[in-house]
Amino acid sequence: MEYKDRVKAARKHARLTQVELAKAVGIDQASISDLERGRSGRSSYNASIAKACGVSALWLEKGAGEMLDASSGEASNVATIDQPSFRYPVISWVAAGAWAEAVEPFPPGFSDRYEVSDYDSKGAAFWLEVKGDSMTSPVGTSITEGMMILVDTEADATSGKLVVAKLADSNEATFKKLVEDGGRRFLKPLNPAYPVEMCAEGCRIVGVVVRAMMKL
C-alpha cells in the first residue's frame, strides 16, 4: 500500500470527509485530495493526520507496523469524532490586517504554529495573541494581554460583537467591540481609558472573535 492509499484508508477508517479531515489538521481540502491522489509526497502534517484519524503515525508515514497502535484504538477514535477539535493557524497582527486585501490569505506554509479549538468555523479562521490592555475591562467581559483569540472571518459581525478590524490608515489589525449608533459603526475598547474609534470609509471588519483562551 502506497502512502496515498494509506492516507485515504486512514480517513475512511475515521469516517471523515476530505473537508472534515482538512479542518481538523489545519490545511485545505485540496491538500488532502493531492495526498490521496499521489500528487503530493509525504506531508509535514503526517502526525496531525494520523492523530485526527486515530491511526499510527509510523504506519501512515512508512507503512510499518499496524494501522492502529496500542495507544489509539477504536475507542479513542470514536471519541475524537464525537468531540471534534479544529486546528487553526496563529498569525501576526500585520498578517491579520493584510487578510482584508489578500487574494489568498492562507497560502501553503503560511504559519508554523497552530492551536486547536472545539469551534467549527464558518470560514477561514485564525488565532491572534492579544497585545496591550485596551480590551481589559474593570467589569464584565475582559480580554487581557497575552490571551489568545480565535477569529472567524465569515461569522456575522453585528453590533455588540467583539471583532478584529483594519482601519484605513493602519497596516495592522485592531481588536475592539463593534457598536452601531445612528447608522454609523464604531470600534469601542472594553478599557474605558482608551478612545472609541469610528469605523468609517476604508475600515474593514476582518472577522468576529468567537473564542478566547489563556495562552498555554
Rank of each mutant, 00 (worst) to 15 (best):
Glu2Cys: 11
Tyr3Gly: 13
Tyr3Glu: 13
Val7Asn: 11
Arg11Gln: 14
Arg11Tyr: 13
Arg11Ser: 11
Lys12Arg: 15
Ala14Val: 11
Arg15Leu: 12
Leu16Ser: 10
Thr17Leu: 11
Thr17His: 12
Val19Ser: 15
Val19Gly: 07
Leu21Val: 09
Ala22Cys: 10
Lys23His: 11
Ala24Lys: 14
Ala24Asn: 06
Gln29Glu: 13
Ala30Trp: 03
Arg39Glu: 01
Arg39Trp: 00
Ser40Asn: 09
Gly41Ser: 04
Asn46Thr: 11
Ala47Glu: 09
Ser48Gly: 03
Lys51Asp: 09
Ala52Met: 01
Val55Cys: 06
Ala57Gly: 08
Ala57Tyr: 05
Glu61Leu: 12
Lys62His: 12
Gly65Arg: 11
Glu66Thr: 13
Met67Thr: 12
Ala70Leu: 14
Ser72Phe: 10
Glu74Lys: 12
Ser76Leu: 15
Asn77Glu: 12
Asn77Gln: 14
Ile81Lys: 15
Pro84Asp: 05
Ile91Leu: 03
Ser92Arg: 06
Val94Trp: 00
Glu101Phe: 08
Val103His: 08
Ser111Asn: 06
Arg113Thr: 14
Tyr114Ala: 06
Ser117Val: 09
Asp118Arg: 15
Tyr119Pro: 10
Asp120Arg: 15
Asp120Glu: 15
Ser121Asp: 10
Ser121Arg: 09
Lys122Ala: 13
Ala125Leu: 09
Ala125Tyr: 08
Ala125Ile: 05
Trp127Tyr: 13
Val130Thr: 07
Met135Ser: 04
Met135Tyr: 02
Ser137Arg: 05
Val139Glu: 10
Thr141Ala: 08
Thr144Met: 04
Thr144Asn: 07
Glu145Ala: 14
Gly146Glu: 02
Met147Trp: 03
Ala155Thr: 01
Ala155Asp: 11
Ser159His: 06
Leu162Gln: 09
Val164Gln: 05
Val164Met: 06
Ala165Arg: 00
Asp169Tyr: 07
Ala173Ser: 14
Thr174Asp: 09
Phe175Gly: 04
Lys176Val: 06
Lys177Gln: 15
Val179His: 10
Glu180Ile: 13
Asp181Gln: 13
Arg184Asp: 10
Arg184Met: 08
Phe186Gly: 01
Ala193Ser: 12
Pro195Gln: 05
Pro195Met: 02
Pro195Tyr: 00
Val196Tyr: 00
Glu197Asn: 01
Cys199Ile: 01
Glu201Tyr: 01
Glu201Thr: 07
Val206Thr: 05
Val210Gln: 02
Ala212Lys: 04
Lys215Asn: 09
